[in-house]
Design a protein around this nucleic acid. Structure first.
Lengths: 344, 344
DNA sequence: CGCTGGCACTCAAACTAAAAGAGTGCTAAC
DNA sequence: GTTAGCACTCTTTTAGTTTGAGTGCCAGCG
């Protein structure tokens, strides 16, 4: 596992390039013919054998060409892949479909993931922000029926969450309105749990005395916060059909695995959140995801959010044989466009 | 195309039963051996040839056994399929997962479709009610930002819809509350469009004079109703993976077609709404759906709703070779359970 | 020492041939 | 009306063969 020579790198790049293009194992002869090497197949064979020893290439079976390993792709992505500019057509598409005005958070995300599914032959994916980490702008209570109450919680980023709960006492809508007003006056750059804490504090400090309205708000908040908003986090997918077009998924068994992973979104979420370590862009190649079902897939994701605050990840899932040099800039571009739109 | 003799019917039933069981074309010998016929293969061959002439059976190729045509299945479902009782295990599952308390409409539907996906090896499907046809219980306005307003519309059946719109004037939350109260006082067993009409009428009749609040409500309603709630109708699916287990979908091409139909939900919706003609239960077999992609699938759906009012359809999608005598009662049972739960 | 041509070898895929198996249609006889 | 028998069809399976792409290694060359 020494360092790679310049020539080895050049060969590795050529092999991966050819493989990304064709999907077929690439052999020494093809390589010798096609590219800028002035080397004979035999020489290339030697180089490729070395690269295999180092773990960058492998063979599906003796006497087939070489295909890149996950490690090979990793090296390629980190060091070799020249990043293509986002095509004018893609820019136009984004301008028309993504860079429009406002809308609820969920709609913005849907637009983003749809755009990715349309601009790439892969699956668009976006993780919905954890509502519990969002800064709340509004809480309104709506009386539904007797003590049954609907709380409408709106975050600054435009996410709307409806929470259904039962109050201890039977309040009128007017009383609920007053409570809402009271609570909203308290709000300020806090998340749901922050608000909860603040309300508890106020209760403890008792500084407002035993004002009737205050007691009402307290009781209400208690019932409300007892019921944690359920949808803690989620992902949205689009363009699953795109995957069916790739030859590597013609195998039914492999297909099943991936669709299973899609259906139980938990595992994908785990991958996405796996390294929240704050890199703006992440590429997860094959088995790096540690998810058996996704062994043959790569993810390219970028963070989106408002200013300092990261809301979630958006990107694509495709075969490990992915056109990284086109996809990486594109995902970046779209994450930016979405973040800009969320600024409003 | 004469009428079928008793014996022909008995043979048809046996063939379809065997085919549903095995998924393989069934030949005369198998039939003769297995079942209660005292007939030789040769005789059965004659009968089967007749049934083929009548269009109830067909052969994948000369010298294969017979498989039922869509018409054959149709006859079977209409006349032959004995309806099995819903199994105790299924009843228990429904009791535990579906017959629980309340929840928003969407959650109830999700529970229903999930239950179907778990109790059958097919895809659970439910059509969301068209919000525009629902009777509205509440409308509340929430001020988001300047003139940007969120309307929370709640139907009697517990569906909640959030509509984002811009008001012409900049109102305070208190003003919005008053407008909400005013509007809700007007409400009574009306759909959204009914309310819209009523508001317009009030406006025309002018009987309230030029009261300030009234003018406010009018202006607000105008902006609100200008923006039709978008999600006009939709379907929810669950258990797509189940389909992958069936041998008839091992063919990748066929799979692709069906998943395409799933992805663009419009076509499925069209099938579901196709015959809203008010039968409580519907079975759509293969090409009867008039959807090329769904040629190899059957749908079994039942209406669900509250009392007199139908809200939508719930059921399953599976291969035409479906265990109708088990599925039909089950779908019925679950639609009933859901309807009961929605009563509250 | 690095590069190359040559050669033996491996393995998957494609093709061919043959055989097996399931099932049919038809006819003649019961 | 029913059945046994037979010839025929067509798929599936198996085995064997060929082809082609590719490798590894070695010996020789610059």
């Amino acid at each position: 596992m020494g360092i790679l020579s310049a020539r080895q790198i050049k060969v590795l790049q050529a092999v991966i390039g050819a493989y990304i293009h064709s999907g077929e194992p690439v052999g020494s002869r093809t390589l010798s013919r096609s590219s800028a090497f002035q080397l004979s197949p035999a020489t290339l064979r030697n180089v490729m054998a070395d690269l295999e020893d180092e773990g960058f290439l492998c063979q599906p079976h003796t006497s087939a060409g070489r295909i890149p390993t996950d490690q090979g792709f990793r090296f390629y992505v980190n060091n070799l892949a020249g990043m293509a500019a986002v095509s004018p057509a893609a820019r136009l598409h984004v301008r028309e479909h993504l860079e429009v005005v406002g809308g609820r958070l969920e709609e913005v995300l849907r637009d983003g993931v749809l755009t990715l599914a349309q601009l790439t032959p892969y699956v668009g994916i976006v993780s919905l922000p954890d509502f519990r980490q969002m800064i709340i702008r509004h809480i309104r209570f709506v009386k539904l029926h007797e003590r049954r109450i609907l709380a409408v919680v709106v975050s600054v980023s435009g996410a709307v969450q409806n929470v259904l709960f039962d109050s201890d006492t039977n309040l009128t809508q007017d009383q609920l309105n007053h409570s809402s007003n009271y609570l909203n006056a308290l709000l300020g750059d806090l998340t749901l749990s922050g608000i909860k804490r603040k309300v508890l504090q106020e209760m403890a400090s008792d500084k407002r005395g035993y004002d009737e309205l205050f007691k009402q708000v307290l009781a209400l908040s208690k019932s409300f916060f007892a019921k944690d908003p359920e949808q803690q986090s989620d992902v949205m997918l689009d363009g699953k059909l795109n995957l069916l077009e790739h030859p590597e998924f013609a195998d039914v068994e492999r297909m099943k695995n991936i669709f299973r992973a899609f259906e139980e979104k938990g595992s994908i979420l785990k991958i996405l959140d796996g390294a929240l370590s704050g890199e703006q862009l992440r590429v997860i190649i094959g088995s790096e995801s540690c998810c058996e079902d996704m062994r043959h897939c790569s993810l390219v994701t970028a963070e989106y959010g408002r200013e300092d605050r990261t809301l979630g990840q958006i990107g694509v899932i495709g075969p490990t044989r992915m056109d990284y040099s086109r996809i990486i800039p594109l995902v970046n571009y779209i994450a930016d466009a979405m973040s800009r739109r969320l600024q409003n």
